[in-house]
Design a binder for these strands. Structure first.
Length: 154
DNA sequence: GCCAACGTTGGC
DNA sequence: GCCAACGTTGGC
């Protein structure tokens, strides 16, 4: 088995929150429309990888829990749906441009680990989400950083 | 709602 | 291939 990887997945709490994931148990993580993020999803995510769930535009913005990748990348169904706001006619089922994975609920933190808290945690220096101007909705996380945030959330 | 920091598009 | 215009993200 390949080495386990760690990720950070951004979502807007008003759109799909950790509470929604806990309720659903499992969901299709769709709507990613950035090539760099797409490449992570399509090429690097494996079943069993763990992801920090990050609420952007939250109050406060921050990490709210953990999910696990439970199905590797497949053509993003929202790109095929003419009624969906993420519809993209250039992405076809035979040759998808955009991809989704399935994730399952692992845990919800009792308190949000706020962006400010992350910034003030010295051991998290270099974590991608803290970098200025970092807008990727999917990004890799180093194991050591994942473990620190996981611990902060328990 | 503002705006900085991007990524994408399209004319040339 | 350059780059200006435009759209989006996301903290504040």
């Amino acid at each position: 088995m390949a080495e386990m990887k760690y990720w950070l997945l951004k979502t807007e709490a008003s759109d799909y929150s950790i509470d929604d994931l806990q309720r659903d148990g499992r969901t299709c993580w769709s709507g990613i429309r950035n090539y760099q993020a797409r490449n992570f999803i399509r090429d690097d995510m494996a079943v069993g990888d763990l992801a920090l769930i990050y609420h952007s535009n939250g109050d406060p913005p921050g990490v709210t829990g953990i999910a696990r990748i439970c199905k590797t990348a497949y053509g993003d169904p929202t790109a095929f749906d003419t009624k969906d706001s993420h519809y993209d006619p250039k992405s076809t089922k035979s040759e998808p441009i955009w991809y989704a994975v399935d994730v399952e609920f692992v845990s919800m933190f009792p308190n949000v680990i706020s962006l400010e808290h992350l910034k003030n945690t010295r051991n998290l220096g270099g974590m991608l989400v803290l970098k200025r101007g970092q807008r990727l909705s999917v990004m890799p996380v180093e194991e050591k950083h994942f473990r620190i945030v996981e611990k902060m959330g328990t």
